[in-house]
Design a binder for these strands. Structure first.
Lengths: 218, 218, 218, 218
DNA sequence: GATGAATGAGCTTTCATTCAT
DNA sequence: TATGAATGAAAGCTCATTCAT
């Protein structure tokens, strides 16, 4: 009867379907949250049959994992790209730049990714955060190499990185999703920057003080 | 159509049932998380019929709210009780004492409350955190009255409180729930104490420095 | 502690409880319909414990049956009381009087009985309507004795009684429960009165006509 | 939250399923009544999974509505088809024809529809009876155009139509469902036909009598 | 005798997943 | 390969009824 549309090359066509599903999933999860998102919702939004959904994803969680993986990889990507520039900036400035840039990324497409990020943070679905931690550790290392004065700090950097990642990131995402936040986004970023900035500066002072006392002892 | 409000337990027997349900809910939520906990699970664990569950709670969420309310109120209680002692301690020591005490509370009964706390943090179920914030604000105020030197700090305390609550608490709970944490509990507490301690000290220094410069200007 | 109220004689106290339950049932059924009425609703409204409900009624349906029995008996009572007066009236007038009187009875207590009557008509609960039919048959008999001219009617009176009871009563109750009836209550009563009145008069005419033709034949 | 609207059956297979469900619903409702019919009963009888039921009907009531709609539409259809023939018949004959035909329709398939009709009459589920009323009004109009002698009747036809629909139809359905009816089906139909026939004839006579008296006055 | 706490069968409804077409 | 109809386990919740106090 009616002519079939020119068949797309297998790989490409499949890729387009997967892409449509993932983008639809971002939308639906942003709108409804993980709990209220069904495979059917996603397939409908993607404009494909539910059968196709299961053609490309073994189950519903798999597409959520893909979502979170992309958010994580985008974040890693941003940090990686920004690292060379950040290491040349004062610490607060560097943190501000990074948070602004990540904030911009999350606000893409009408906040779709942002709302997903929130659900990602809360989800039980295990997504390996190690790549982000690694990237931040690398950033920290690069930064120290450029600012050897900070190298004297004695305390375990894992601790502050741990707190910054789990606490800072959570506060950041939480705030960005609030409707009527008690503090502004700029204040939040300043607060986080100061948290790190003050911390580092104080650490250094304490090292210096210790040096002096030790010097005095000598 | 419209249903009776959940029965107010008037008799001893009823009170025991409610208590059994709440305690069972703590256990089951700790084990399975909010999503995978059903009313039936809770009733089974409590050793009561499912009908009894719905006799005292209008729905599943209501018992979760009760759980979270108790966790919150216990936390508030601890902070309130500790406040008089804390205000006399150095800031890091005060924070350490508080976190240790809260940590102990959460570790009661084989970590049941701790695991629930994690789920509470992640849940969409709105539990009013304002009482905790209020208690912390009160603690801060009491502390400042005892340590007037901190009063000079110019920066908006809402910001650090916001970050401490949303970030610090999350990092704290998250860490306590980790099986193989990269840093120890003591390190975490030191890290958080330093985060606040360093922050405050640095804030004060900056005020002093500003005073001096201003003084120099004169 | 506090003095028990003077114990009522067993029989009376029980009677009062039963009465409270039945009256409460009238109210609740009127408000919520049979389906949405629970034993608990009735006990609550009656101000007695649910246990007491089952002390006096073997199950929920039993109280509904009692409701319907009372409605039926009240109707029978009205017809019985009215019969001596009705037999002396013209047929339409008699019917109007009866329907007005039954209507008044159903409107007692804010329409409580009326709304129950509707539910009674629709219910699957078998309530023996025979007493009403018997009473109406008796009324018809008395009427005929007073108005021998109607006696000539050949057609089976069971048929019209059947239709009057099942149809007329249903139309009557249905109309009384309508919020925005297309015809007024008076029009309905006139319609029903005419339905019977016209019917009887036409029946008689047909008998007469038959007599005349038969007479002519002779 | 919000759910998809029930699927529109597009494929043959789906249409067959819907049909199976509706037919099963007729059977089960006929057997058990509305109250005792569950979605599961219907699905079982239809030989489909309960999931399929909810694929095509948003809830149990929806399938009942479909049942009643079909009964109503079949009734309307019969009246419409019969109207041209009926208007040429004497009034009693016309009514008899119509009632016989509707009775035949209801007795299809072992009385399945008949028993459903009874439940439909009693149900609280609002099914718009307006189409039947409209069809009957149209029938009446057509009839009057063919029999202008009836046009003289002064009384409001809404009243008799109201009584005929609500009373007559109820008596009709009620009788057809009785196991041991005190009058036969033919007697019932004759009774209803006479009810209408006598009524109309008497109405006309009264008009004539009035005319005559008015004529005498002149 | 009165009470009301406890019960659980039973109902409605959802949705992840399969598989015939 | 893409589809969407079909499925049924599982969850939330109700309420008639019982029975210990």
């Amino acid at each position: 009867m009616n002519k079939r549309p020119p068949r797309q090359p297998r790989q490409e066509r499949a890729k387009a379907t997967v892409e449509a599903i993932v983008e639809a999933a971002f939308s639906v999860v942003a709108e409804r949250g993980l709990q209220n998102t069904t495979a059917q919702h996603i397939a409908d939004k993607a404009g494909v049959g539910i059968g196709s959904f299961y053609e490309y994803f073994p189950n519903k969680e798999a597409v959520f994992e893909e979502l979170f993986r992309r958010l994580r990889d985008d974040t890693v990507q941003i940090i990686r790209e920004l690292t060379p520039a950040m290491v040349k900036l004062p610490v607060r400035e560097a943190i501000r730049v990074m948070l602004m840039r990540v904030g911009d990324m999350l606000r893409r497409e009408d906040g779709k990714y942002l709302r997903c990020a929130r659900h990602a943070m809360r989800s039980d679905i295990a997504i390996d955060r190690e790549p982000i931690e690694r990237e931040l550790r690398d950033l920290a290392l690069q930064y120290l190499l450029q600012h050897p004065e900070y190298l004297k700090t004695k305390s375990n950097p894992s601790i502050s990185i741990y707190i910054f990642i789990h606490g800072g990131m959570h506060a950041f995402i939480h705030h960005m999703n609030e409707r009527n936040p008690v503090i502004s986004f700029e204040e939040l970023i300043d607060g986080l920057a100061n948290m790190i900035g003050h911390y580092l500066e104080r650490e250094m002072q304490m090292v210096e003080t210790a040096d002096i006392s030790r010097g005095n002892d000598a």
